[in-house]
């Protein structure tokens, strides 16, 4: 039997991705673009919140230039919805082709292909999933995690990494609070246990409650980008 030789690798599997993510960050910084990575479960209201947020941002500044990268395994429904908004909003559909999350390479390719130089804000709507997207750095400047009231206040305990990596957690669909056994204080406590620093905002894209607080947060980030 032939002898074998061992080659030491000692390399983190996500290290290559982290390098590309740094490249994405550098490109965006140079262009003055603030990139947001929006992560959540399917059905948590990502697209609805996004539509409401974009409308508000356009109201505040009609000149604002926004790109929305829609990452889905295979669909173009969300991109079509966003195209109806008009203004200076461009939609960029990225099919991950079966991958359960966007990675930095996909983000880099999308940025190059769609020429994002002029954008103030680039929003990545990640694949609906509370596991994989948390593990993969896309090169975004800010990670937003949505948790909708019907999903339950225990989710930060069940998907700890997602809540650990978040810069801000948005509790969505709070207009449905009375129908579900959702404890406001418990959810804050469960998030804090994993992440003492994340901002937490309760909102409803439907009634508009909490939307000002959220758009103010975004605007403050855009000013410093």
């Amino acid at each position: 039997m032939a002898n074998v030789r061992i080659i030491d690798v000692h390399q983190g599997v996500f290290e290559a991705n982290d390098l590309v993510a740094a490249e994405v960050r550098a490109i965006n910084k140079n262009n003055g673009t603030f990139m947001l990575n929006v992560m959540a479960s399917p059905g948590s209201g990502k697209t609805t919140l996004l539509m409401a947020t974009l409308k508000e941002l356009i109201k505040i500044n009609p000149e604002i230039k926004i790109g929305v990268m829609e990452a889905d395994i295979d669909a173009s429904v969300d991109a079509e919805k966003i195209a109806t908004l008009g203004g200076n909003v461009r939609s960029i559909q990225v099919h991950t082709g079966g991958e359960c999350a966007m990675d930095a390479q996909m983000a880099l390719e999308a940025i190059n292909e769609f020429d994002t130089k002029d954008l103030d804000l680039l929003i990545l709507e990640n694949v609906g999933n509370l596991v994989c997207p948390a593990e993969t750095d896309t090169g975004a400047d800010c990670k937003v995690v949505l948790l909708s009231v019907p999903e339950g206040d225990d989710k930060p305990l069940k998907y700890p990494l997602m809540f650990e990596v978040a810069n801000i957690v948005l509790i969505t669909k709070i207009d449905t609070m009375s129908f579900f056994n959702f404890d406001r204080e418990a959810v804050v406590k469960n998030i804090r246990m994993r992440n003492p620093n994340a901002s937490i905002i309760f909102l409803s894209a439907k009634t508009g409650e909490g939307m000002t607080e959220w758009t103010n947060y975004l605007v403050s980030k855009l000013i410093t980008a």
């Binding site: 030789r5 000692h10 390399q11």
Partner: peptide, 22 residues
């Protein structure tokens, strides 16, 4: 206390590969 953090256990590394000796 809940002031705790993970020291090890989150790794996902390629340690080594074995190849035929030439």
């Amino acid at each position: 206390s809940d002031k705790t953090y993970l020291v090890t256990g989150n790794e996902f590394m390629i340690k080594e590969i074995a190849v035929p000796e030439d």
